[in-house]
Amino acid sequence: MSRIAAAVAALLALAACGAKDTREVLHVGSQRGGTKAVMLASHALDGAPYTVDWSEFPAAQHLLEAIAGGSVDLGLVGDAPFMFAYQSGAPIKAVGAQYVAERPRGALALVVRAASPARQLADLKGKTVATTRGSVGHHLALAALAAAGLPADYVRFTFLAPGDAKAAFSSGRIDAWAIWTPYLPMALKEGARVLVDGHDLVSGYGFDVANDRAVKEHRALLDDFLAREAKALDWARTHPDDYAAVLARETGLPADIARDYAIKNGRRSVPIDAKVIDDQRRVLKTFRQAGTVAGTRDIAKAFVPPAGA
Rank of each mutant, 00 (worst) to 15 (best):
A6Q: 11
A7S: 11
A13G: 09
A13M: 06
K20R: 08
K20A: 08
E24L: 00
G29V: 08
G34Y: 08
A41D: 06
V52G: 13
D53S: 15
S55E: 15
S55H: 15
E56P: 04
P58F: 14
L63Y: 08
G75F: 04
V77K: 05
D79T: 15
D79V: 12
A90T: 01
Y99N: 10
V100F: 00
L108H: 06
A114F: 02
S116N: 03
A118K: 00
A122Q: 12
G126Q: 06
V129E: 01
T131A: 09
T132V: 09
V136H: 07
H138L: 10
H138Y: 08
L142T: 00
A146N: 09
A148Y: 04
R156H: 10
G163R: 13
K166S: 14
S171T: 11
S171D: 13
P185V: 11
E190G: 13
A192T: 10
V194S: 13
V194K: 09
L195Q: 04
R213W: 05
V215K: 11
V215P: 14
A220S: 14
L221Y: 03
D224G: 12
A227I: 00
R237Q: 13
R249D: 09
T251Q: 15
A255I: 12
D256M: 14
R259E: 12
R259T: 14
A262Q: 07
I272N: 03
V276S: 05
D278R: 03
Q280W: 04
F287R: 04
Q289D: 13
Q289H: 10
A290E: 03
A300I: 06
P305T: 12
P306G: 10
A307I: 06
